[in-house]
Design a protein around this nucleic acid. Structure first.
Lengths: 214, 214
DNA sequence: CTTCTTATGTTAACGCTGTCAACACTGTCA
DNA sequence: TGACAGTGTTGACAGCGTTAACATAAGAAG
């Protein structure tokens, strides 16, 4: 266990403090969201003095940003897994399944890890640049890139008019992102998981209909 | 000017401190969002000691909640205005215009007052109970209620299958809310206003298509 | 008109946070 | 061996939310 050497470390130098602080930050974010990512608490958990953090992060915001990126990468991984599990078939079917995978994975992550989800997105700068390398999943593709792949296929397979293609990513993203927020912080908070999953599919239905309607 | 008697008030008692603190809180939220609503700063602006606030608000969260409610009421007012300006016509046309009014007003408020918009919604408890009296517009109808009116008319006028009606509010809300966030904090931040307005209409098109598609 | 009570505002203090400055330890390269 | 850069520590400061005790004003009761 390289993380959390609570009792007391052997050497004066920690060895991998940056990584340890990031891990502690993830823990804090997991149950508590972005506001819970507190620099002093992270150093406390790692067993190091507060100011040691400043050797690895410019300030608290830098730590929070790193945690946010890591959370985004987890989200990407989740979507990636669903994306890659899609069986081959007709181009239309694959495209529809890909769109569904992105939306489903997105919402599922929000439900399973609300704290990390909030941390991933409630940091303003991170909605902005959500396709950087550090924020991608194992395949190296960011959620936005996966969404782009799916939508391009919508056009290529002829089920979406090309005129509707520009900025379609953001229409789809809006719906799923907003829905995730309603689920974890909003009026749908109390919705049982099974029902939440069902309504998620309806959200995706709506998006799909909006793209493919005549 | 009843607000902000900066120099020094005449009497020991302020007179309308609760209101003044709320106004100061709104100012802070307007440029800075929820995190900028700082209790001590609000009292400073009103010209009163920090602890005076505790005679009117249980804690900082109570002040923030009040500010959040006021912001939500402003949003409701904005939507209300568009809603009431809809000319009469066929039931379908009116229903479509109503849905469009809610979405358009929602996004317009987010663009015009991003700080207040964030404050209205990034306080978890306020997405939850967004149809309370204190959060409604001048007409007394909350945004959610206006949306419900529009969607009921979608079914009544026959352009939306009744089977699709349950929880349709949340599908529409998700899209518009998520889109507003992408616009003010996300990748669409730099989008010129005219273009933002145009894409907003496409978001609403998508929602409408999802509701009325065959 | 005085007195008691209640509402409201103030002062003092605590622990928490992020952060700067100065100091201490340690592994590395000359 | 010694300089040096990297890393962790101590001490301190201002700002925050919050509690407890005190001060002042306004109104009700006598």
């Amino acid at each position: 266990m390289t993380t959390a050497d609570s009792p007391a470390r052997a050497s004066y130098h920690h060895g991998d403090l940056r990584h340890a602080l990031l891990a502690a930050g993830m823990e804090l974010a997991r149950d508590g969201g972005p506001d819970a990512v507190v620099l002093r608490e992270a150093t406390r958990r790692v067993g190091v003095s507060p100011n040691a953090a400043y050797r690895h992060f410019a300030d608290r915001d830098a730590l929070l940003s790193a945690v946010s990126d890591a959370a985004l990468a987890m989200l990407a991984g989740r979507i990636d897994a669903l994306f890659d599990a899609i069986p081959s078939g007709s181009p239309e079917a694959v495209a529809r399944a890909q769109l569904r995978a992105v939306g489903t994975g997105y919402v599922a992550f929000a439900l399973d890890e609300p704290g990390l989800f909030r941390t991933a997105f409630f940091v303003p700068t991170n909605l902005e640049t959500s396709s950087a390398a550090s924020k991608s999943g194992p395949s190296g593709r960011s959620p936005l890139e996966l969404l782009t792949v799916a939508l391009d296929e919508f056009v290529a397979s002829g089920i979406m008019p090309a005129a509707r293609r520009p900025q379609a990513e953001f229409l789809a993203w809006s719906s799923v992102h907003g829905f995730a927020l309603l689920l974890i912080d909003g009026p749908l908070r109390a919705l049982p998981r099974a029902q939440a999953d069902a309504v998620t599919q309806r959200v995706i239905d709506m998006v799909e209909a909006g793209f493919t309607a005549p």
